[in-house]
Each structure stands twice: as structure tokens, then as C-alpha cells.
Simulated scan of single mutants.
Amino acid sequence: MSGIIEWGALGQVVLVGLLVGAGVPALFALGLRLLTLPVRADVEAGGTHDGDTTAAVAAPGLARRLGGYLCLALCVAAIATGLAFLVSGGH
């Protein structure tokens, strides 16, 4: 029975499937999470303590922005690599 299934090839397919199928979406979600900040409780409640409904929300710091952009750039690179592989014949 072991002659029918190539275990090494099957392992490679499963590994790449896990990396691409779960890794790229997780990287995308991490990139989005790094680029957003949690909403403060007073903003979520509908305003600040003085009744003003508009509140300034701070932008993420430089390190978070760079990390988020890096994660999203890696996602774009993975998609471009996959498309180039498919267009070239997929072999």
C-alpha cells in the first residue's frame, strides 16, 4: 500500500496548503489589526464627557504602521507569486 501513496509529496502538499490556506489570511488579519486602534469607551458610548459626539481617535504609532504595512505587503507578494505560478503553467 505504501507504493501507491507518495508520502513525501503528500506531506509537502499538506504543508503548503496549511501555510497558504491559513498563514496568508492570518497575516492579513494581523496587518489589519496593527493598523487599527481599539475604540475608547467614551467614544463607543456616543461622545465625550462634555456631550460632544465627535472625538479624535489617535493614529497608530510608527512601529504598528510599519508592521501592518509589512504584513499587507507580504500578502500582496504571496498573491502575486501564486498568480505568476499559475500563469506560467503551474509546473
Rank of each mutant, 00 (worst) to 15 (best):
G67F: 03
A77Q: 08
L70P: 01
R64D: 14
A58L: 13
G21H: 06
V76L: 14
L86Q: 07
W7A: 07
A56F: 15
A77T: 05
V16A: 10
L70K: 03
L86K: 08
G89V: 03
L86T: 02
G31D: 07
H91T: 04
V13A: 13
L10C: 00
G82N: 04
L86N: 09
A78Q: 07
G3R: 10
L18T: 06
L72V: 05
V14R: 14
A58D: 15
V76F: 10
T54I: 08
V43K: 02
F28H: 12
S88Y: 02
P38L: 10
T81W: 13
V13R: 11
T53D: 11
V39L: 15
A29Q: 13
A63L: 15
T81I: 03
T36Y: 07
G61E: 11
L10P: 00
G82R: 03
G11N: 07
T48F: 02
V14I: 15
F85V: 00
H49S: 10
H49C: 00
P38H: 08
G46P: 03
A78H: 09
L66E: 05
G51L: 04
L15C: 02
A73T: 12
V39G: 00
G11F: 11
T54A: 13
L62N: 08
L83K: 01
L74Y: 07
L27W: 09
T48P: 00
A80I: 04
V87M: 06
G21C: 03
P60C: 10
L30Y: 09
R65I: 12
A80Q: 02
R40Q: 07
G67P: 02
I4H: 11
A58K: 13
P38D: 12
V39P: 00
